[in-house]
Design a protein around this nucleic acid. Structure first.
Length: 289
DNA sequence: CACCCGTGGCC
DNA sequence: TGGCCAAGGGT
């Protein structure tokens, strides 16, 4: 896949967005923070928060010196607040184990809280300019279409997919890093899930999916309903506690009266068990971050 | 491996 | 209008 790779690299040089974590001055920590914030979250919502976060906590040591509650509160409504909790834990681990230096080894990164296969590879490539196989949902979709000729990748990452992706990544370190971000960018801007802009795609000449007339994707698994879900209730509880300056009686809160007591108790217990909220020692029956 | 975990915007 | 989607990770 040499020609399409070159075409996508050239396209990225022209059309790639200038995002702050892509600037040459961005630190490995700043890049790691951006990768965690971008997990399942659009760039547009990450941008303002990342800037404020990095201004407040520019290094792992700075974040490690704050409290988990500070981190969860600053995370605001970015979503999946456990990412904030784990990012804080990650900062503490980097400070304690590596004297505040973000490790450059992929397996070492993978062992840090909140850092999985994708994020470890992304930090290796984008923060340290080393060759890595970065396989996010964008790269998977781009490869599925161009190479496999299917509208969407399989539900879960397969070994064959990893092998194919590894074959495509250029051997040279710097080019490999650029390829990874370019493929992600193509998936984000052109080869999108919903309405791909094949007329603007630098790889359309080689795309098997386009050549086959863009066959539709196999039906996806149905998502569980959102309204009334535990996730929604947990989100409401956390929103309440983020805004509070003192412990709150969550179970008796007027703003949660519409939630069935059994579900409310279950969600409170779950959040406590997750370590996202804590029983307050100040007053019986109250909680805080 | 299947399932759970937030949030907001878009067509 | 509501189902779908967005640079996944943990259990």
């Amino acid at each position: 896949m040499g020609a399409p790779v070159d075409a996508i690299l050239a396209w990225f040089a022209r059309e790639g967005r200038a995002l702050p974590w892509r600037e040459s001055g961005a630190s490995p920590w700043g890049i790691l923070v951006s990768e965690v914030m971008l997990q399942q979250t659009p760039v547009s919502r990450v941008l303002p928060l990342w800037t404020a976060w990095m201004e407040r906590w520019p290094t792992p040591g700075a974040l490690a010196g704050a409290t988990q509650a500070d981190a969860v509160r600053a995370w605001g409504r970015l979503g999946y607040p456990r990412r904030a909790q784990r990012l804080w834990e990650c900062a503490v681990a980097i400070e304690e184990r590596f004297s505040g230096r973000v490790p450059s080894d992929q397996a070492t990164l993978r062992d840090l809280p909140g850092i999985g296969e994708y994020t470890a590879a992304a930090v290796v490539a984008f923060a340290f300019g080393r060759r890595a196989v970065v396989l996010d949902t964008n790269v998977r979709r781009v490869l599925a279409r161009i190479v496999a000729g299917t509208a969407a990748p399989a539900p879960h990452l397969t070994g064959a997919e990893r092998a194919l992706a590894a074959e495509v990544v250029p051997l040279d370190s710097a080019t490999a890093a650029t390829w990874n971000v370019a493929a992600m960018e193509l998936g984000a801007l052109v080869c999108t899930s919903r309405a791909p802009r094949c007329d603007a795609c630098p790889a359309s000449k080689w795309c098997r999916w386009l050549a086959q007339g863009r066959p539709v994707a196999a039906s996806r698994r149905v998502a569980s309903p959102w309204a009334g879900s535990d996730r929604q209730v947990r989100g409401r509880i956390l929103a309440l506690l983020r805004a509070a300056s003192s412990p709150i009686n969550v179970a008796g809160s007027s703003s949660l009266q519409d939630v069935e007591p059994g579900q409310l108790d279950r969600c409170i217990e779950g959040l406590v068990s997750d370590g996202l909220i804590h029983v307050s020692s100040a007053e019986r029956g109250t909680h805080e971050l």
